[in-house]
């Protein structure tokens, strides 16, 4: 099985998961053809599956992601940047030139797209691994499923189910803002197991009840925090961005 690992606008953090499962990878007959962070010899030829970290943020990246699609049987996007646009997509909600000139003294030298967008805005995507960063067992699951030819099953249910399976008392009822009910499971309910609210790094479930949870936050008197935590790693996910921007 030929694998490629690619990076776009991102922090490189999700790719670390490949090193964490390296013992398992060695046991499988996988051939890592392209992975700049891990090896000096790389071939851009043909891939059974390509893993893409990072959002599409520059014109070059837009071209490059299309090339990757052409060369790959399957494309899996990994992490909140690739899935949703990442933390850098908060610029999508501001004036682009204001942002640009506030960061760079000579913005003329910068070639950037106005928006930082998810990979799926440019190409068809076969699999999505959520999280900031991703969960290494989910990464192993995707690779071993492809390797063994079995159906990949990743959760689509909210974090609350994972949290309850672990027997953790609901932190929202105990008075802390938590996005668990609109966030997809898969991280192992890390934050609630340390009595902290989930801030949604795994991104939204399908059709989240955003409005009702907003009212719940208001009833708890959490102030304006709701829109702030939604404006994070997954702000530009299709479930969250404005309705006019869905396409």
């Amino acid at each position: 099985m030929k694998i490629g690992v690619f990076k776009f606008a991102s922090c490189d953090g999700c790719q670390i998961a490949f090193f964490e499962i390296s013992k398992e990878l060695i046991k499988m007959d996988v051939d890592i053809q392209y992975f700049l962070e891990a090896q000096s010899e790389n071939h851009f030829d043909h891939f059974d599956v390509s893993f893409v970290e990072g959002s599409i943020s520059t014109p070059e990246q837009e071209e490059r992601i299309k090339q990757i699609r052409e060369k790959s049987k399957k494309v899996a996007v990994i992490g909140a940047c690739a899935v949703s646009g990442g933390i850098q997509s908060v610029r999508n909600f501001m004036d682009f030139f204001d942002v640009l000139s506030s960061v760079y003294p000579s913005p003329d030298y910068i070639k950037s797209l106005e928006k930082s967008k998810p990979v799926s805005d440019y190409i068809d995507v076969d699999y999505e691994l959520r999280g900031c960063p991703i969960n290494k067992s989910q990464l192993l699951e995707i690779i071993s499923s492809l390797y063994l030819g079995k159906e990949l099953v990743l959760p689509s249910y909210p974090l609350c189910l994972e949290c309850k399976i672990k027997g953790i008392p609901c932190v929202l009822i105990l008075g802390k803002p938590c996005l668990g009910s609109i966030t997809v499971a898969g991280c192992g309910a890390i934050c609630p197991s340390f009595s902290r609210g989930c801030y949604g790094c795994f991104g939204p479930i399908k059709n989240p009840n955003i409005q009702s949870l907003k009212e719940v936050f208001e009833d708890h008197g959490f102030g304006d925090i709701y829109s702030h935590i939604l404006t994070g790693f997954n702000a530009y996910n299709r479930e969250f961005r404005g309705n006019d921007e869905k396409d």
């Binding site: 668990g180 409005q211 009702s212």
Partner: peptide
């Protein structure tokens, strides 16, 4: 429109019995 479909009620209910097999 109010329910978050969070599943908490079913998980804490002493009689809910549904399970999945993975």
């Amino acid at each position: 429109s109010k329910c978050l479909a969070c599943t908490s009620c079913t998980q804490l209910c002493p009689t809910c019995f549904c399970f999945n097999i993975v």
